[in-house]
Design a protein around this nucleic acid. Structure first.
Lengths: 147, 147
DNA sequence: AAAAAAGACTACTAGTTCTATATACTTTAT
DNA sequence: ATAAAGTATATAGAACTAGTAGTCTTTTTT
C-alpha cells in the first residue's frame, strides 16, 4: 500500500500539472480542493521542491508550480521520492534494497523470483505513465462518466 | 511491501509443498530451517489451517501438512489470507476495498485508474503462480546457480 | 516602514500496526 | 503417566504514519 504522503503527492502534482504554465498555486488552495490536511501537504510539497520537481515563490501571490512539463514526470519517480518502495519485498527493491534476513541465498529463492517479475511489471507501468498521462486519463474518464 | 507474516507464510508453504505427501512436519523444524521465530510461525500456520490450506496433527509425530496439491495453491490466495492487500491503493483493492476519503469521485480519478492497471498486472502474475511453480522455479534457479 | 501573505523548517505527539513473546491449555502417541 | 506437539489468547515493544504546532524567513502591498 502506498502511504498517504505518496497519494497526496500524486494528487498535488496532478492539480499542479493542470495548472502548468499558469500562476503559482497556493498550498491552501490545493489542500482545500483535494481535501488534504494543509500542514501535511506543506511538508510534502517541500520535499517535492527539494527534489527539484517544483518551484516555490514566497510572499503574497506566491505558491507552487511544476518546474518541468507534466509529461516529463513519471509516477514511479513520485513514488520513490515520497519513500514508497515499489517492490513488495525488500530484497527485490531496486531503490530500497535490503537483504531478507531469513533467506539463506536470495539468488535461489523462488518466492523472490516471482516478486522480481511483479516488480518489473509494476515499474513498467509506473515509469511509462506521466502526470500528463494521468491528466488525460482523467479527462477521458470524465467524458465517459458523463455519457 | 508484504508483511513478514505473508513472507513467512509463503516460505512455510513452499517447504510444506516440497514435503507434500510425506509425514507431517513440525513447526519447530520449519522454523529452524527457514529462520522464522517459532511462536510467530505457530500463529501463521494456525491461520493457514483455519483457512483450510493446511491440516494439523497434534501429539507426538504430529505437525502440519498441505491439504491440497501445491499446484492448487496460488500465491495471491496466500497474500490475501495473510492480510496483505495486493493493490497499492485501498480504493483499488478487490478484497480489502476502502474509499479514499480525499477523493470526490473515484470513477473519474486518474491516479486510481493507473493503479487499477498495476493491480491487474500483479494479480495476473500472482494468481497464475502456484506454490508448485515456486518450487520448480527454485529448482531451476539452483541448477543455474551451480553452473 | 509596516503589515500581511505565503512558504520554510523543526519538533513533537498520538495513534496504529507489526513483530514477536509469554502463558496456559488440549490432544495424541508411547 | 509422560512427553510431544499443536491451540488459543493476551500482551509488550518497536517502528512507522499521519497529522499538528510553532516559529522563522521572504516577498508583496499599502
Amino acid at each position: 500500500m502506498l502511504s498517504k504522503k505518496t497519494r497526496y503527492a500524486l494528487k498535488a502534482l496532478v492539480i499542479l500539472g493542470k495548472n502548468f504554465g499558469g500562476a503559482p498555486m497556493q498550498i491552501s488552495r490545493i489542500a482545500s480542493e483535494e481535501h488534504i490536511p494543509k500542514k501535511f501537504l506543506e511538508q510534502i510539497l517541500l520535499d517535492l521542491r527539494n527534489a527539484g520537481l517544483l518551484y516555490s515563490k514566497k510572499g503574497a501571490g506566491g505558491g507552487y508550480g511544476l518546474v518541468k512539463d507534466p509529461g516529463e514526470i513519471s509516477m514511479v519517480q513520485v513514488l520513490r521520492l515520497t519513500g514508497g518502495p515499489v517492490a513488495l519485498l525488500p530484497c527485490v527493491s531496486l531503490n530500497f534494497y535490503q537483504k531478507c534476513d531469513e533467506c539463506d541465498n536470495e539468488l535461489t529463492c523462488g518466492v523472490r523470483d516471482v516478486f522480481v517479475e511483479v516488480r518489473n511489471a509494476t515499474v513498467k507501468i509506473l515509469s511509462e505513465t506521466s502526470i500528463a498521462d494521468v491528466i488525460s486519463r482523467e479527462e477521458l474518464l470524465i467524458k465517459n462518466f458523463e455519457e
